[in-house]
Design a binder for these strands. Structure first.
Length: 866
DNA sequence: TTCCTGCAGT
DNA sequence: ACTGCGGGAA
């Protein structure tokens, strides 16, 4: 499977590439084998021609011939590959002709997607294509890479085109491929080639390897494939093949030099590019990790692993016994290391705007968003993105609600005013509730709305499903409506809130277009630079608590110990002393209540001081929320994000190669009395995705508020974050992170790191539980000012930069589910679980819906088994 | 679930 | 020499 296949190549201009058939055929003889035993060879790291070898000369000659002959007839046709020696086309045509009778016409090439790289491609450009493909193929399967590669070379046909691109666009196109640093390496490498090498790729591996992001493997692949330079490319496929050829046991990671020596010995200097690709292709398609197809292997005559197997069978050995000497015993297995556990509280903030974009046009009042005109945004938000297959009815409803119908601006209707009034009423009600420490919000508001509004087709499909999901989650033990947190009071409150708004509010909930808050992850680390739903890492000691809190009480007596020891590794995430760690544990860090508290703190920080966030609050946090509102009351925010409902949507476990991440998903539905453009402006969320006419065209993501670079923040970066804080942060300078961490010990909630442990920035996991001084976003500035007085100015400034919120964006459902944003697969899964899968059919909404919702709930339930 | 593995940073 | 970094197929 691994299948990293390389391209075929052969620029005619490069070293002669003789077709296999030209090679002498007679070396059929001696293959008795190089009886040299493994242990004898282990010491040698390079192959001087004279010295003992892993293969006899006859073996080498025959191996090359058979391998290349096989390749010439069986290679796959791939968009980055040239096949000048291919015998495959004739074979395919013959087969096609035979199968379709004597139909003469030109045989259409299979499915049309199997096309080689244009043979007229200039060598330098071909080298660029090879490079791109090789990087994409690292740890990624061919079938997955093909569409990405096609999009890539269409967008950036030459290295100069790529060098001129920006990282956001590159990331977006890369989204879904994984190992996202590769995208950055590609961009960095392209710029290096253009700026340092005059835009031309060197022709040898030793020179190519100097390009950033290009290592031993990639340099050899490009040198051999694009330029015919004799360098052996050793990837996972090659390692597997040669390990089996000589039956090398042991951890393959310890034998790198051996593999390199073997590959070099076998390398055909006449056709190095073809040889490299052939060996890798063999590993991908025949000498597979599991189920190797030895019967079809062109070089099994030289394979000791196969010989062992045959000998075993010949001796009467049973094929199915556990310890049979299978070919797949090679290469040996390397020790498996356990994945580290990570728990994240993810919040999908869903906002319904009461005002349509065109109705609020003037509100920007000169301080419009840095990027894109209002007009452009309006158009974008009113235009369904082609290519996305969301519920047609829902899309229609959304479009209608967004004011799509009348070409000319329509006056605000009575309904608009009614909705706005209802929202205001709701908002007042909730603020009052918060002030009195009462729990607002209901888990069933949406469902109620549906009943009252049968004409709201789109919502009809959504809301019942959500309720089901919630119930499922609750039933499974994986989650529950958060209203449970408040005990008995919540339900009653909910009913009040739901009905106090009256039918209009219900209509709004049912019909209003929804926007979802996304944030950009740190530039480094896991999923670097990608968009995600806001999330806070929950201290790991909470893991065990979580089991007790949300799942059945299967006493997993586990993680507590893990946590109490200071984290030794360099990530420096858990650097708190044990005492503090214990304190955190005592707060029951991963409970529904605590996750909600973390969520509120994070949202306040992300939303900034220009917008109030009401309706939050656990009992203890309510007071803080109230007080912070009071503090802000001296300069009351003009706008409020009024929470209508919170739903605990269970958990979703995402397994990375080295991390097992448990995401606790909470959906927060809120109403904003205003239009989306105003909301974007107030929250400084200036990134926007632009749909294009082409389904596969990639959106341009403009990030007005980029993550502030700790070393050199620009005035624009900071100003757009929060105008009120300009003075404080405008001259930020870098400072050692350690100092920051020390000087601001228990900064608690406001510093909740983004999901990315992101390693680096984010001050690491400040899990300090300074509840008392939890800082809401609106208060951060004051805090900073105080610190500025108490500490060195530079330090405070560094802190300000450190805590600057990441880039934010409001995205529609279509955008989230579409391919235009750089959303990783995990993020999309979380969205699906949070708001329900988009239906294929509109038919009885509830049906398809329950499938999706149930899936999520089941997943949450099964995850418990872990 | 298990398996796979290039490159850079350290 | 070791570790971080995704995702998909089997």
């Amino acid at each position: 499977m691994r299948a990293n296949v390389k391209s075929i190549h052969q620029p005619k201009t490069s070293k002669g590439c003789k077709p296999t058939d030209n090679i002498a055929v007679e070396c059929r003889a001696a293959k008795e084998q190089a009886g040299i035993h493994i242990t004898q060879k282990l010491n040698r790291t390079n192959q001087s021609p004279q010295e003992q070898s892993w293969f006899t000369q006859n073996e080498v000659a025959e191996f090359r011939q058979e391998l290349l002959k096989w390749y010439d007839h069986n290679h796959r046709v791939l968009p980055w590959r040239r096949t000048p020696h291919s015998k495959k086309r004739e074979v395919d045509i013959a087969v096609a002709d035979a199968s379709r009778g004597a139909d003469g016409g030109p045989v259409a090439r299979g499915d049309g997607e199997a096309e080689s790289a244009p043979s007229e491609l200039p060598q330098q450009q071909f080298a660029y294509w090879v490079w791109v493909s090789e990087v994409m193929l690292q740890q990624t399967q061919v079938a997955t890479v093909i569409p990405y590669f096609k999009r890539w070379v269409t967008k950036w046909p030459t290295v100069a085109d790529l060098a001129a691109a920006d990282i956001d666009t590159v990331n977006t196109l890369w989204a879904g491929l994984g190992y996202y640093r590769r995208a950055r390496y590609l961009l960095d490498g392209a710029r290096f080639v253009v700026e340092k090498l005059g835009g031309r790729f060197p022709r040898t591996a030793t020179e190519l390897v100097k390009i950033p992001g290009v290592g031993p493997y990639t340099s050899a692949a490009v040198a051999s494939i694009a330029f015919g330079s004799p360098a052996a490319a050793v990837d996972g496929n090659v390692i597997r093949v040669v390990s089996r050829l000589r039956a090398l046991p042991g951890d393959p990671t310890k034998l790198a030099s051996t593999h390199a020596a073997m590959a070099s010995e076998l390398l055909d200097p006449e056709r190095p590019g073809c040889y490299n690709q052939a060996l890798m292709e063999l590993g991908a398609t025949v000498c597979r990790p599991v189920n190797p197809n030895c019967a079809a292997c062109p070089v099994r005559g030289a394979c000791r692993a196969a010989a062992e197997w045959e000998a075993y069978l010949a001796a009467g050995g049973a094929p199915d016994v556990e310890d049979a000497p299978r070919v797949t015993n090679y290469p040996g297995r390397k020790a498996v290391k356990e994945k580290r556990e990570q728990t994240v509280a993810v919040t999908v903030l869903e906002v319904i705007c009461t005002v349509q974009p065109h109705a609020a046009g003037g509100t920007a009042a000169g301080t419009g968003p840095p990027n894109g005109s209002s007009a452009k945004r309006k158009k974008q938000s009113l235009t369904p993105i082609p290519g996305t297959t969301t519920d047609v009815t829902a899309a229609a409803a959304v479009a209608a609600a967004a004011g799509m119908q009348p070409p000319p601006k329509r006056q605000r209707t009575m309904q608009d005013f009614a909705l706005a009034a209802a929202a205001r009423k709701q908002q007042q009600q909730q603020q009052a509730d918060v002030a009195t420490k009462r729990v607002v919000v209901t888990g069933e508001t949406g469902a109620a709305a549906d009943k009252g509004n049968p004409e709201a087709h789109g919502a009809e499909d959504q809301e019942p499903r959500r309720s089901e999901v919630v119930r499922e989650a609750a039933a499974s033990g994986g989650g529950r409506s958060d209203s449970g947190r408040g005990g008995a009071g919540a339900g009653g409150e909910a009913g009040g809130a739901g009905t106090s708004g009256g039918l209009d509010l219900e209509m709004l909930v049912a019909r209003g277009a929804r926007h979802y808050l996304l944030t950009m992850r740190p530039k480094d680390g896991l999923l670097a630079g990608l968009w995600e739903f806001p999330g806070a890492i929950i201290p790991t000691d909470a893991g065990s608590r979580a089991e007790l809190d949300d799942d059945d009480d299967e006493a997993d007596n586990d993680d507590v110990d893990v946590m109490s020891k200071p984290d030794p590794d360099s990530m420096g995430k858990n650097t708190l002393p044990t005492a503090v760690s214990a304190a955190a544990a005592s707060t029951n860090a991963n409970s529904s209540t605590e996750r909600q508290r973390l969520s509120d703190a994070l949202l306040r920080r992300l939303l900034g001081a220009n917008i109030a966030f009401s309706g939050s609050g656990t009992a203890p946090a309510a007071a803080e929320a109230a007080s912070s509102d009071v503090g802000a009351a001296q300069q009351p925010p003009q706008h409020t994000l009024c929470v209508l409902a919170r739903h605990d949507m269970g958990k979703y476990v995402h397994v990375f190669s080295h991390i097992r991440q448990t995401n606790y998903i909470q959906r927060v539905t809120a109403v904003f009395h205003g239009d989306i453009i105003t909301l974007e402006r107030l929250t400084a969320a200036t990134a926007t995705a632009t749909a294009t006419a082409h389904g596969d065209a990639v959106a341009k993501i403009t990030t007005g508020t980029t993550r502030v670079d700790s070393e050199n923040p620009t005035r624009a970066d900071i100003g757009s974050l929060n105008e009120d804080e300009d003075v404080v942060v405008s001259e930020v300078k870098g400072t050692a992170k350690d100092e920051i961490a020390e000087s601001v010990p228990a900064d608690a909630g406001a510093d909740t790191g983004a999901t990315g442990n992101g390693g680096s920035s984010s001050g690491g996991a400040k899990k300090g539980q300074g509840r008392g001084k939890k800082a809401a976003g609106a208060v951060v500035g004051k805090k900073q000012q105080q610190q500025q007085q108490q500490q060195g100015a530079a330090e405070a400034k560094a802190k300000a930069a450190e805590s600057a919120p990441p880039a934010r964006m409001w995205a529609s459902r279509q955008q989230v589910e579409g391919s235009h944003l750089g959303l990783s697969s995990g993020v999309k899964k979380i969205f699906q679980q949070a708001v329900g899968a988009s239906d294929a059919g509109s038919g009885r909404g509830g049906r398809a819906a329950s499938k999706g919702g149930k899936g999520g709930a089941n997943k949450a339930a099964s995850a418990r088994g872990k």
